[in-house]
Amino acid sequence: MEAMSSQRTSTGPDRAARSPLLFVLAAVACATALGWTYWAFVRTTTGQFADESAWREAGVAAPDTQLPFLRFLDTLPTISVVLAAAAILFVTLRRKRYGAAAVAVAVILASNLTTQLLKNVVFDRPDRGVATLAFNSLPSGHTTLAASAAAAIFVIVTPRWRPAAAALGGAYSVLAGAATFINLWHRPADVVAALLVVGTWTLLGGLVVMRTGEHWNNWEGFGAHWASSRWWLVLCWVLGLGGLAVSAVLYVSVHAVGPAPEPGTANVPLFFWWGLMWIIGVGFTLAAAAGRLFAAQAGRTAVRGQRP
């Protein structure tokens, strides 16, 4: 009788970012959402009124939080630069991932340059009859800096750390954006636009990182490490989609009952809560989607049993 034996054969790792079109389409979706945000809340009367109302109501709805948020905003550039620089230096000097470090720096520079060009050169703020500041402030520079620093860390860490990096980076970005809003530095649409700018460049930069670093972009699956627990992304999905749903309900409700005749004069600051939930929703949804896409597109080593 012929002896039966079992042999385990490794087929080698699947290629990282094996569906690059997904990254490109996701980046295009972010850029499209950015364009829609500008059109809807800067170019239209209804959008300008809602955005301006949220900004003015922030000073009434959250007066006690402005001093702590101001202190945080004062240190935000330093915190962001230190965090990103530490991560980039670590992967450069310790892990020898020079290409990934270069891409991470490029994501930061491209995001912040794009924001400044859009805000100061490309976009303008037309007069739509709403009492508001005449100059354009979309996208937010402070939010872009914070979110791009978090994005740089996200794209250069190994796959098992990316779920945690997505959740923590998303929280940091949302906190920075909410701080600029509550402290009356920016309107909600400015913050959301900044998050979408960074999201666009993160997806494009991540595609390059995964395709040029396939030897370390290998995914062991959810739960292989505490930082790769799926609960990081579940939390982001809950906060993100929940925030978007609440913001949509608030926006529809305030227009259904009729907004105040002038921005910021409503008895109940519904526009403020709409803006805050919109920021939370977009920030965490982007974090969850990026974490899921990068996990799905990381390389895998497939091992199968063969019986001759």
Rank of each mutant, 00 (worst) to 15 (best):
M1Y: 14
P139Q: 05
Y98R: 11
A50L: 15
G59L: 09
Y98T: 07
G47S: 10
T11K: 10
R304S: 12
W274P: 00
D51Q: 11
G141F: 06
T75S: 13
S253F: 14
T46W: 14
L117Y: 03
V174D: 00
N218W: 14
D51H: 10
V303R: 11
T132F: 13
A290F: 13
S6T: 14
A85D: 04
W231C: 05
A171Q: 09
I108S: 05
Q297F: 05
S19F: 12
P263D: 06
F69M: 10
A85M: 08
L21R: 04
G170M: 04
V268I: 05
S253T: 11
L244F: 06
L235E: 02
L25T: 01
R18A: 09
F222N: 01
Y251H: 12
L207Y: 01
P188Q: 02
N217E: 15
T78Q: 13
A302L: 12
V155A: 11
T144S: 10
V82S: 07
V208W: 11
C236L: 06
N217F: 15
P20S: 04
F181T: 05
T45I: 00
W232M: 00
L276P: 04
A287G: 09
L133N: 14
E57T: 04
L195P: 01
V303F: 15
R300W: 06
A85E: 01
V121N: 04
P308E: 10
W36K: 00
L67Y: 14
T115S: 12
L70M: 09
V103E: 00
A110V: 12
W219A: 01
S140D: 03
A167E: 01
G170W: 00
A16D: 10
M4T: 14
L233N: 03
A151Y: 12
A149S: 15
A302K: 13
T132I: 13
A171R: 07
T37R: 02
G59Q: 08
L196H: 03
G177F: 09
V24D: 02
T285F: 06
N136E: 04
P261T: 03
A256P: 08
T75K: 14
G299E: 07
G169Q: 09
M277R: 02
V208K: 04
S229I: 02
T78K: 12
Q297G: 02
T44I: 04
Y98N: 04
R97E: 13
P68G: 00
T115I: 05
V208Q: 03
N267K: 11
A150W: 13
A86C: 12
L241W: 08
H225T: 01
W226F: 12
T202A: 09
R162M: 02
T158H: 14
A167Q: 05
V174S: 01
P139R: 03
S137R: 09
R307Y: 13
L168D: 02
F41N: 04
T200A: 08
W55Q: 05
A166C: 00
D64F: 15
T301K: 11
V174W: 09
D190V: 02
T158M: 15
A171L: 15
V42C: 09
F294T: 03
A266P: 10
